[in-house]
Design a binder for these strands. Structure first.
Length: 265
DNA sequence: ATGGCTGGCGACGCCAGA
């Protein structure tokens, strides 16, 4: 009888892939995720540390940009097969925020959704337009007969249960009704928000800002999400957040969030 | 109600993040 194999999919906003390379490599070695989406590379394509990541046992595809943004997909022991490197719907949008590839038999989209601050304003408009474009594209993926995951930094606090104190974030783009409604509409297509599914009523955060020792005091936000289409959600086994990474010296302000799923096929 | 911290850039302060 064949033993059921489990895959671990993770998303991690590294906040500078080169500045944070030691943290990233320590985490990869400790947790050994099979599929990783990275956001906020803050590096050009040329500066992406492909050799160090390959030495750690991971193949990679990436889309960099000077100073800001930047996304990558890593596969443990395999090179992801890229299927798309732009979110359709706006040829003038040059920000590196989307990358899609087949990894270990799963179609995985790495998402770095715009922050949208300050709101109101053009940056918030861009965020909402980006979410509309994401929803349009996601609609073409959710019903596919093979497993699909949208994972990344969505920059949306879905509900008041996803923030240590909603009042201190009430003017922020991440918590606005328009942002929440757009996220809810996306889920309504049939995606499973895996962390919430697994944790139920329990509080779980993925981001803690650098102020007032918020990480140590666990005053965080849940803004990094792993959305699974129905085919993949059927195999959902577990989920978690590697908070220990956030408590390291010189840490990113996000921690890696992950799911375990039964391997397709 | 506000400011507090951090990284990238490129030359000490500014922008952007969330």
């Amino acid at each position: 009888m064949a033993r059921k194999k489990t895959l671990k999919l993770a998303t991690f906003n590294v906040n500078g892939v080169n500045t944070r390379l030691p943290n990233l490599l320590e985490w990869l070695d400790a947790e050994k995720p099979d599929v990783v989406a990275l956001q906020e590379l803050k590096a050009t394509d040329q500066a992406f540390p492909a050799q160090a990541i390959e030495k750690a046992g991971y193949g990679a595809v990436w889309q960099g940009q000077p100073s800001w943004n930047g996304v990558a997909l890593l596969g443990r022991g395999t090179v992801p097969i890229e299927s798309r490197r732009r979110l359709p719907g706006d040829a003038a949008d040059t920000q590196s925020r989307y990358l899609e590839a087949a990894v270990h038999g799963i179609v995985v989209a790495a998402i770095y959704l715009p922050n949208g601050n300050p709101q109101p304003g053009p940056k918030f408009d861009y965020k909402l337009e980006w979410m509309e474009r994401l929803a349009r594209h996601a609609r073409t993926l959710v019903g596919l007969p093979h497993p699909v995951a949208l994972i990344g930094d969505f920059n949306v606090i879905p509900t008041d249960d996803d923030v240590y104190d909603p009042r201190s974030w009430r003017k922020d783009a991440l918590i606005q009704p328009q942002s929440r409604q757009a996220y809810a509409r996306l889920l309504g297509q049939g995606w499973t928000d895996a962390l919430r599914e697994v944790f139920g009523e329990e509080r779980i955060y993925t981001f803690w800002d650098y102020f007032r020792q918020h990480a140590e005091r666990d005053r965080g936000l849940r803004i990094d999400h792993l959305l699974l289409n129905p085919v993949l959600a059927k195999g959902l086994e577990g989920a978690g957040v590697d908070r220990w990474v956030r408590l390291r010296e010189k840490a990113s302000d996000h921690a890696p969030a992950w799911v375990t799923v039964s391997a397709p096929g």
